[in-house]
């Protein structure tokens, strides 16, 4: 299962479509608060997390801290998907524990191959 945290409904649909085709079940969270509640309540970690940075209520970095604070979630691959392309944003995300950083607009093929590689690596 993949947790997809994205507040743009068009993009959330697009990501769901791409992940569905790859055979993943998808849990959508439309803002930081919903995502935080889901992460805190989940009994098992997802196979992968797609995380936007700019979100209402709690941003992607806060959620990433929360994810990495849970010992059983430490190895979950997290792909940050964001419009922020400055070097310091990428470094900040990778330092905080993101596995990959993809800048919007993105190439669907590139996203698919990175998802496959990360999921394969953690299996």
């Amino acid at each position: 299962m993949v947790l997809c945290v994205e507040d743009d409904s068009d993009l959330a649909y697009l990501l769901q479509f791409i992940l569905d085709r790859e055979g993943f079940a998808v849990q959508q969270a439309a803002d930081g608060q919903i995502a935080r509640r889901w992460i805190e309540a989940a009994s098992a970690p997802p196979a992968l997390i797609l995380l936007d940075v700019m979100l209402p209520h709690a941003d992607g970095y806060e959620l990433l801290d929360l994810i990495r604070a849970r010992p059983d979630w430490a190895q979950v691959p997290v792909i940050m998907l964001t419009a922020r392309s400055r070097e310091r944003d990428v470094v900040r995300a990778l330092d905080a524990g993101a596995s990959e950083y993809i800048v919007k607009p993105f190439k669907p093929d590139e996203l698919r191959s990175r998802i496959k590689r990360l999921v394969k690596k953690t299996k």
């Binding site: 743009d8 697009l14 993105f106 190439k107 669907p108």
Partner: peptide, 14 residues
């Protein structure tokens, strides 16, 4: 509006 938004979310062949 919807088409432009999708166009600006994606790159490449899409």
């Amino acid at each position: 509006d919807l088409w432009n938004h999708h166009y600006e979310l994606l790159r490449g062949e899409a």
